[in-house]
Design a protein around this nucleic acid. Structure first.
Lengths: 347, 347
DNA sequence: GTGAAAGCGCTAACAA
DNA sequence: TTGTTAGCGCTTTCAC
């Protein structure tokens, strides 16, 4: 049952050629005559031979393995991205090795060691919560890194995000256009660039409309924290309560909506409007029907893959920082005000 | 910036010992004196040396890589499982290489080749839709396989599932106890063992109660198909419409509920009761509050990991087929009938 | 175009 | 306990 895997020498013997002829047959750019190539292929087929990628990587220095570092998969945006990443890399002859990591310093070390141990050709950091040091240490060890859905102030690191500042601004415009004036924000983790950019874009544009948010609470990208924040928003005087909430991610927005409807008994959008960020598939499900900023996962993944592959091919090229814009998708969790109090328009 | 990674020879020179001493220091069971060990560790630390896992695997025949083959990550059960798998393997010094695969024959070949190319130590098939042949060919190539959340009639393959037959039966009991008599089933893909087992357990137990389902439609584990099935169920005469639906997975159940509420204008559970299967986190969210059969993901993952590791350690051990039972979690999508027509009880 | 030979970084006998 | 010596399976000069 357990046939030992044949190696290139077995194939060479069977084909009546040298071992290097076998290697050449399986090396894309190498020079082999059609006849030997045919003999080798035939022998390989009969024996069920496939070159050992690991052995090859020893000599070429390319493992054809890419690491994906991610903190959690609760937020549907990440599994969706993971699926796309895996398919994209598979099509390029690469494969994705998964590393789960929290913020803990200990984790950072373990993950780093793992990355280096497996000689990964590149790293995608899809987590918002992993320490910055990790990316820097990978780069300084010669392993290209691309940050996905986050960026750092460090300009030496490649990063692909949506245009979070513009997205936040777009939400502000929309809520104002809907006639809202008492607006709250349950933000993404303020330790993450993504959370900060969305908040800043939102708050600044609100200010341009002459509006200050009634409250800004950090939702930590966590359902429970976001739910608690929602309760806080509605615990005070009636006058201080928001009539619209911008939530820093769809994942949290669902928790906010659940709390609003089922715990506080409020109607969406009649009593409170809600806007999210990401446009994960679930946002389009009728149960939520959430107005949200679309993050173009396809485009972001493609850009990330391309950037990483370029840096793998040539480590000397300059890092890229890409911002891929996405539209606001208006759904049923917000409703244009029939008679906007202030008549503010979008520009 | 790009320091070349040091190798064991560099460390040996620096520590003033032989290269094998370095190897021994990093090989758990090897015999090294405390003094050389200390010297090696110091030198390694200074140089930032870590053994190359790939080179090691060439000689040991263990890559410390496990493949996870999966078809899609839409169904929340799979990302949750993936996260647990990755963490569990990381704790054991293994890592997960992801392979996305559809049913297509072409995919089966590509995935198989990928698995063999990377010399993975073991394979977890978490997909319900990948061809049976793949698992068999891995095993016959000497790569241990464990099926996750599915099984095959082939007794030579290890498999870990929940007790799908018992789970289906439990749903039948519950719906009957709730007083329902016009019961429909939107099943999981009938090409999958999981889909068939749940259906059979359900239908057989219903029969024991003297009830025949009003309809059984294959939902293919797909939201759109399940939604279409729901429309079909309610397209006929009022008398032929179900007052309860058992759906073969939570993922489909959400689509069924959305269709029921927002397209057909029906109330759950008043007009129609709905039961799912899996108990993914979302099933507990108030927006759905879905009665469902709990699949113990933790237990299933642990059992799968353990089974796979055992077979990696000793390929001659017999395959295990494990069924891990989970309870029915009753939530708001079903309601006990105040006055059950037939007075059927659960046993 | 082809084979011989050297080595990628490591582990595992084998002597010492 | 230690160093020396063979490889693991492959790619890549280098002569031919």
């Amino acid at each position: 049952m357990t046939k030992p895997q044949p190696n290139s020498m077995d194939v060479a013997r069977r084909a009546g050629v040298s071992q290097s002829a076998v290697s050449r047959t399986f090396t894309p750019g190498a020079s082999v005559s059609e006849s030997t190539r045919a003999k080798v292929l035939a022998a390989a087929e009969e024996l069920g031979y496939r070159p050992n990628v690991l052995a090859r990587s020893l000599i070429t220095g390319r493992s054809h393995i890419v690491a994906l570092v991610v903190a959690y998969l609760d937020n549907q945006f990440y599994p969706v991205a993971l699926e796309k990443f895996s398919k994209a890399f598979q099509a390029l002859g690469y494969h994705v090795l998964v590393f789960m990591a929290s913020n803990a310093d200990e984790d950072v070390e373990n993950v780093l060691e793992g990355l280096l141990d497996y000689q990964v050709d590149g790293v995608i950091m899809a987590s918002v919560s992993i320490s910055n040091r990790l990316a820097e240490r990978c780069e300084s060890a010669g392993v290209p890194v691309v940050l996905f859905n986050r960026r750092q102030d460090d300009e030496r690191l490649s990063a692909v995000t949506s245009d979070n500042v513009a997205g936040g601004a777009r939400v502000a415009d929309h809520l104002v256009a809907c006639g809202h004036r008492r607006i709250a924000h349950v933000s993404g983790w303020s330790g993450s660039s993504t959370g900060r950019d969305r908040r800043n874009g939102f708050v600044d544009r609100l200010a341009a409309h002459g509006i200050e948010p009634v409250a800004i609470l950090d939702g930590m990208y966590d359902r429970d924290v976001a739910a608690a924040a929602t309760r806080t928003l509605f615990s005070g005087e009636a006058a201080s309560r928001p009539d619209a909430i911008f939530v820093g991610s769809d994942h949290m927005a669902f928790a906010v909506m659940d709390t609003l409807r089922f715990e506080l008994g409020l109607r969406i959008p009649d009593d409170v409007a809600v806007v999210g960020y990401d446009d994960v598939p679930m946002a389009g499900w009728p149960a939520y029907d959430l107005t949200t900023v679309h993050q173009p996962a396809d485009g972001m993944v493609d850009a990330t893959v391309e950037t990483l592959m370029a840096r793998i091919a040539d480590k000397t090229i300059a890092p890229r920082i890409l911002r891929i814009d996405g539209p606001l998708v208006v759904r049923g969790s917000t409703r244009p005000h029939p008679d906007p109090t202030g008549g503010h328009s979008r520009d």
